[in-house]
């Protein structure tokens, strides 16, 4: 499937908007959450094409979505999970789950097993992607807050001297 045509972009925007509506997103947070899901889908597609690994592509896409969620939750002062959930929806391995089941039904057990491993791998990749970025962000915030308290203590101690 050619990613660089206008219909592909429109289709990705369409399903992202469909997700946003079904999850009751409206108003000022609508556009960033839809764009997040679309860009996540492109990340996934590009990762699959140039890295050749579905699992790693999912990791990258999930990391991107987490970063996107952190940035927009700060800008819009909205819960980051809204952007995160809408962005993660296209990544959820619905296709692998289905193909696993079809392989099982058709008694192709080895195929079913490898597809199952892929499904679990994708789920873990999404988990690690979110975990990695979210925790790094908390770490940065903690360090920044230390810095702030340290500066405040310094000022206070100076004040006490005089």
């Amino acid at each position: 499937m050619d990613m660089w045509n206008i219909f592909y972009l429109l289709a990705s925007l369409a399903f992202s908007a469909g997700y946003a509506v079904q999850y009751g997103v409206r108003g000022r947070i609508f556009v960033p959450s839809v764009l997040g899901a679309t860009l996540a889908w492109y990340c996934l597609g590009l990762g699959e094409r140039y890295l050749g690994s579905v699992v790693f592509a999912n990791f990258l896409a999930a990391s991107f979505v987490s970063l996107w969620a952190v940035i927009w939750s700060r800008r819009k002062k909205a819960p980051s999970t809204i952007f995160l959930i809408i962005g993660v929806l296209p990544l959820v391995p619905g296709r692998s789950i289905y193909l696993t089941m079809v392989a099982l039904v058709e008694r192709r057990l080895m195929d079913a097993l490898s597809l199952l491993v892929e499904t679990i791998g994708i789920s873990f990749a999404i988990t690690i992607g979110i975990l990695f970025i979210t925790t790094t962000y908390s770490l940065i915030r903690v360090i920044l807050s230390w810095n702030k308290t340290a500066r405040k203590e310094k000022i206070d101690s100076r004040r006490n001297r005089f």
Binding site: V92, G94, Y98, I126, I130
Partner: peptide
């Protein structure tokens, strides 16, 4: 039929449950 089924069922994937579960565990 496989493409149509997967495309339609993508409406139901448990993305919110999965993401919230990960978030809670973190």
């Amino acid at each position: 039929p496989s493409i149509v089924t997967v495309a339609v069922v993508m409406n139901l994937v448990p993305g919110m449950l999965l993401t919230n579960a990960i978030y809670d565990i973190i």
